[in-house]
Amino acid sequence: MIDTRLRRLLSPLLGRPRDRPESFRPRGTSSRVSRLAERYDVEVDAALQRLWPKSRIYHDREFTRDRADFLLVVRGRGVMVETKVKSDPGLFRGSTLPPLLDRLQRDGRRLIVVLNQGDPTPARALVAEKLGDKGCVVVWSGPHHDADLHGAVEALLQQMVRHQ
């Protein structure tokens, strides 16, 4: 009880600086893919900030299969962003996406899956089956793919009607 009260008293004085980006959620393991995924999340976050400097980006602090990694809000409209990392350049089937797709299908939200490498054809079919034109899969591995990422997100944003 003392710790809680002390934290409550000191938190206004020691609050997090606003100029620092929100910290990313810790991954569950220390595997090579998890380390790559953590680094990839940081790179995608930087790309989103670079492409939409006036946007707001919210990070999910927990690792769950049914929630996206980011919420990107541009001009009052939101798009969920899920990052996926493959350690090999093969096919990306999207086997981990169904819980997220089911939830977003119920909620009516838009989703962009950002993949670091590989052929996303099977995952694109899965996303199209579940979300239709409210979802897409883009391969992004650096600034040379910024145009693809920008175009995909803007296409999803154009579909949306702003809620009054």
Score class of each variant (00 low, 15 high):
His150Lys: 03
Arg162Ala: 13
Leu111Phe: 05
Glu129Thr: 05
Ile2Ser: 10
Glu82Pro: 03
Leu131Met: 08
Gln159Ala: 10
Val153Asp: 03
Gly15Asn: 09
Asn116Tyr: 02
Asp3Cys: 10
Gly151Leu: 09
Glu129Arg: 09
Asp146Pro: 05
Val153Ile: 15
Ala147Trp: 01
Met160Thr: 03
Val33Cys: 07
Cys136Gln: 02
Pro99Val: 11
Glu62Ala: 14
Tyr58Ala: 10
Asp119Thr: 06
Phe24Asn: 06
Gly135Arg: 00
Trp52Asn: 08
Asp102Ile: 11
Ala128Val: 04
Leu10Tyr: 12
His144Arg: 03
Pro99Met: 09
Leu91Glu: 03
Ser141Ala: 05
Ala46Ile: 05
Leu131Ile: 08
Arg93Pro: 06
Arg5Gln: 15
Met1Arg: 00
Asp119Tyr: 05
Gly90His: 04
Gly142Lys: 04
Arg65Asp: 13
Arg77Phe: 10
Arg20Asp: 15
Leu9Cys: 06
Leu48Gly: 04
Glu38Thr: 15
Glu62Pro: 09
Asp45Trp: 02
Arg124Glu: 05
Ser95Phe: 06
Ile112Lys: 00
Val85Phe: 03
Asp119Met: 06
Tyr58Thr: 12
Asp88Tyr: 06
Leu13Met: 15
Asp119Val: 08
Ala155Phe: 01
Leu72Val: 14
Gln159Asn: 08
Arg27Lys: 15
Val127Phe: 02
